[in-house]
Simulated scan of single mutants.
Amino acid sequence: MVAKEFPNERISLENLEYQKYGDSPTIRSYTKWELFEENSPLKLPTEAKAGSVMVNPHVLLSGSEAFFNLPEGVELAEGKLGLSHPEESRILGFHFYALKKSYRLKITRDLIKPLIIVSHLSERAFVSHHLSIEADNIKVPIIIYDLAEKGTKSFVVELKTRDSELEILTVGKHKSISHYLLRASLGINAKVRAFTVISGGKMSHHREDYSLEGRGSELILRGMPIAINSAVDYLTNVLQHGEGTESETRVHGFSYKEGWLVHRGTAKVFESAKNSSSRVISTITVMDEGSLGVSVPMLEVDTGEIDEASHSSAIHQFDEDALFYLRSRGLNGEEALDLFVHGIGEALSGHLERLKGKARSNVVELIEGVL
């Protein structure tokens, strides 16, 4: 319960900062934290009714209610894995302050069809959802929908896996204020392929942390944040501890119609991660004047025994030649942008195997919903 996390809740929250300067060499925060402050659990109700969603999930966390229709091989319990803590930051302090109950899933067998998870809020409130997932010696596809229509929603997903192959598609579609944290611990021979597509809201703060702790663990991460008259702060952090680990983060984001888009991608290879490889590629395409795009990739390597380590950053303006070509074929500016982003989405989602068809349909649906 909240009282156990914060015996003196309000006093503890007041002592927490949103972001320490040490978190970023830019010595500044790109998240519009003032919006979270104005719409915090200290100012908004922390309970809300469930709303309707367009998908049929196995796990539905909507408002303050939870509904489960789990397939065989997935066990449900209450509690957390303990990979995240309230004292880490003010936003996590808010998360645990408002959290009513956390849930824990244990996947015990291979799943052919995706496990579908939905986190949803449609009322003006501050609501926290918290879900932990354990997966050992299995193969499973997972689709996570992060939907924020009104109010402020905080969703924390904790993942612990080893000797497994996971494919994760995260679809974030926001109109209001959203905080999302996926924190994953990859043990021996764990392989995770992840694709994230985000349609930003008033302020979407989306963070993914992956710790490659076991020998031979692998991560492929693809991200496509989209800020169309909205704001997205997208953080990806990869920590490689295990020997012979591999990671590749590739993000291509878009800002349009005074959109505010930032990608901060960090990778660190520790001394223990000998014979590992790490890559971070960050690209932002700014579609028009008045939009913001910021790309901040960071790479730190503590061992001299490294197979590969590289990072790159690019900020592009929309290709005027490509736009002229598409317009000459009868498309207007927004139709040309739609087609261009669809093509990027297809390319980024192509690495998903069992989720490929579902990933493509969700990317198309998401783009059509925001243009």
Rank of each mutant, 00 (worst) to 15 (best):
G369A: 13
I138G: 02
E246Q: 13
E368N: 13
T266V: 13
L337T: 05
E243K: 15
I91Y: 05
S312D: 13
E248S: 14
R124L: 05
E17Y: 09
V286G: 01
G290I: 02
S276P: 07
T245L: 03
V301F: 04
S132C: 08
E308I: 05
F68K: 04
G200P: 04
S29K: 12
V341I: 14
T196L: 08
L99K: 04
H120E: 12
A50S: 15
L169T: 00
L235A: 07
Q240T: 08
T236N: 10
E38S: 13
D209A: 11
K173M: 05
R354S: 15
F96V: 13
G265N: 06
F340T: 14
Q317E: 11
H241Q: 13
V341W: 07
E9K: 11
K191R: 13
S230C: 00
F67T: 14
L366F: 05
E5D: 09
V294C: 07
L76D: 10
L115E: 07
E320H: 04
K43G: 10
K113V: 07
F318Q: 01
R10Q: 13
R264Q: 15
K160N: 09
S312W: 08
L44C: 08
I142N: 01
T283F: 12
F155S: 11
H351R: 11
V197G: 00
